[in-house]
């Protein structure tokens, strides 16, 4: 089996699968990174993903174009972000619990809307892969990286973009200060509330797009619980990546490549119980982080509601 795994076509297959699997994690985790950088942690990513997945699917089904689905998913992201903001920022609720509430709300509402609007499983026309001219002709690399649909490119493109926004723009500086020292940011005249709202909306749009990727760019259909816990993994990957876009890219790729590897190992004939293959990405993610452990300071005010009066 080992020699089979080392064949070039298999390696290409594994990495291609991994890149596809990484896409929703990458989108959702980058979004969550913005939330957390501004000081809010949002456990409701799963619920937002489900809503994005459903609404994207439904609008695409009705309009016949996945692009309208994407637009609708963005709208859903804005709505869910504002909702989370209302509860967690304006009403200063305990974020762990409001996130769980948002998760239940989103998963439930998506299932409910699916039932009353569609009510049966059906496929749609999703996004087709776009081979990037010249690059996709490259041997190996072309197949792995340059023969996907636009959402995959978009997700990976968001890594340098997020990095640039976060570290090279004043706005990024404001975000980081809202999450690190909101009191200081406030005395400097920044509106911590506005920054946090904006980040929640951005993060939520990203999560909704991650969900829409599942229906419009991956499975071309919708079914109950299509996100299947990916939102929670995305939250975990933010910690893996230590709030840095490149770290998140590493985490999402690592997790997904191990996942892709285990699928392929099973496909090629496996002599160990499949459960060990399925758990491999989870085990190795913990191990990787343990080995690479070092002292990191996250956003110091993460999870703490901000209010001017002070507590």
């Amino acid at each position: 089996m080992i020699d089979q795994l080392l064949q070039m076509s298999v390696i290409v297959g594994i990495i291609t699968t991994g890149v596809r699997l990484a896409t929703p994690f990458l989108l959702a985790a980058l979004g969550e990174m913005f939330d957390q950088r501004a000081g809010v942690y949002n456990l409701g990513v799963e619920g937002i993903m489900m809503m994005g997945a459903f609404v994207g699917f439904w609008v695409a089904l009705r309009s016949g174009s996945p692009w309208w689905g994407i637009l609708a998913a963005i709208g859903v992201g804005i709505f869910m972000g504002l909702l989370m903001g209302l509860i967690s920022i304006t009403l200063q609720a305990e974020q762990g619990i409001s996130g769980i509430g948002l998760y239940m709300f989103g998963v439930g509402l998506a299932g409910y809307l699916f039932r009353i609007t569609v009510g049966y499983i059906t496929g749609i026309e999703g996004f087709k892969p776009i081979a990037i001219p010249y690059l996709s002709d490259l041997p190996i690399v072309g197949q792995i990286f340059f023969n996907h649909n636009w959402m995959v490119y978009f997700a990976f493109l968001m890594v340098p973009v997020s990095w640039f926004v976060l570290y090279k723009t004043t706005w990024g500086l404001k975000i980081r200060s809202a999450g690190m020292t909101p009191e200081a940011a406030d005395t400097l005249g920044l509106s911590v509330v506005a920054i946090r709202y904006t980040c929640l909306v951005i993060g939520s749009i990203a999560a909704a797009l991650a969900g829409a990727f599942l229906t419009l760019g991956h499975t071309n259909m919708y079914a109950d619980n299509i996100s299947a816990g990916r939102g929670f993994i995305a939250v975990a990957l933010v910690y893996f990546g230590r709030w840095s876009p490149w770290g998140i890219l590493g985490g999402a790729l690592f997790f997904s490549l191990v996942d892709a590897l285990q699928l392929w190992v099973q496909v090629l004939g496996l002599n160990i119980p499949y459960e060990f293959a399925v758990m491999a990405p989870y085990v190795l993610t913990i191990l990787a982080l343990t080995v690479a452990a070092r002292q990191i300071w996250g956003p110091a005010a993460l999870g703490k509601p901000f209010n001017r009066e002070g507590d």
Binding site: D224, L263, V278
Partner: peptide, 28 residues
Amino acid sequence: EVRIAYTGSFGDIAKAAELAKAHMDAGA
């Protein structure tokens, strides 16, 4: 050759899709 693989879940349709793609890429 019958190649049996499991996703580890009953309801993860995206994973099932990916597993099917891997099967097909591997020649099924």
